[in-house]
Amino acid sequence: MSKKQAKETQTKAVGLITLTDPSSPVSEQYRTIRTNIQFASSVDRRLQTMVVTSSGPGEGKSTTSANLAVVFAKSGQRVLLVDADMRKPTVFKTFQLNNAKGLSTVLSTSQNALEVCQPTVVENLHVLTSGPKPPNPSELLGSQRMNQVIAELKQTYDMIIFDMPPVITVTDAQIMASKVDGTLLVIRENVTNKESITKAKEALTLVKAHILGTVYNGATQAKDQGYYYY
């Protein structure tokens, strides 16, 4: 592997501000996003599974998915955060979990998904890490086995959040967006451009994804205190 390739595959843990500073304005904005997502659920369309993605890298989709998982769990719901970014996983680092087994293991074997889910320091929050990097992430996500796993997990968890790769880069997010109840698109100030947003929306619309809305990430208040809003 070249130095460039090695650098491209490096990932790091994301910040869990909703855990380290729950009273901060940023944490409050995540709770606002949670509330808006809950209002998007209805009797006719219960929102139990959700994809979080972005148009490109560096827009904060993993930060958003992890912090949303925390605030949903703190509201008393049984939450599962699934690291479905099997190419550049971050969730196991964020929550300091073992990644020897994970989603790739479940999808490529007959192992029960619940046996691989791991508890976290947050009450009500479990994580299904990515597992060892497979040669065929898109095929695994698009398989009938994936449908079975989702159905099994829905029997145990109130909310399942899938952290996905960027939608324009690979087809993984498109595939999963067609399987879940809703999709959240993360965009970042001074990073995302209008053309990328348009392409991402077109890609999701193509698979008839239920787009819940966008999280506008990286705007600043006084003293450069970051905040997120929905």
Rank of each mutant, 00 (worst) to 15 (best):
I187C: 03
P166G: 06
V191R: 13
V186P: 00
L185E: 04
V170F: 05
T183C: 13
I161V: 12
R145F: 00
V180G: 04
K179A: 06
I168L: 15
V170W: 01
I187W: 05
P166C: 10
K154I: 03
E152R: 13
M159A: 12
K194E: 13
Q174W: 01
D172G: 10
K179Y: 02
P165I: 08
Q148D: 15
V167S: 01
E195D: 13
Y157C: 04
Y157K: 08
D181I: 09
T156F: 11
P165R: 09
M164F: 01
G182N: 06
D163A: 05
I168G: 02
V167K: 00
A151T: 13
K154R: 15
N193R: 13
I175Q: 07
K179E: 04
T183I: 09
K194A: 14
Q155Y: 06
M146P: 09
D158T: 11
F162G: 00
M146L: 11
N147C: 01
L184I: 10
Q148I: 12
I150Y: 07
S178F: 04
N190D: 14
I168P: 00
T169A: 15
I175G: 06
D181R: 12
L185W: 04
R188Y: 01
A173D: 09
I175T: 12
T171C: 07
M159E: 01
Q174A: 12
Y157R: 01
T192I: 06
I161P: 01
A177K: 01
Q174R: 15
T156S: 13
T169V: 13
R188K: 15
V186N: 04
S178T: 08
Q155G: 06
I161K: 08
R145G: 04
A173V: 08
A177G: 14
K194F: 09
L153C: 08
V170G: 02
Q174N: 12
I150S: 06
L153D: 05
M164R: 03
A151I: 05
D158I: 04
E152D: 14
N193P: 01
M164Q: 06
I160D: 00
M176Y: 02
Y157S: 05
S178I: 09
Q148W: 02
M146H: 06
D172A: 10
N193K: 14
M159H: 07
Y157F: 15
I150P: 07
K154F: 02
R188N: 10
Q148Y: 09
A177Q: 02
N190R: 15
V149W: 00
R145P: 04
Q155N: 12
V191F: 11
N147A: 15
E189W: 06
I168M: 11
V186I: 14
T171D: 11
V186R: 03
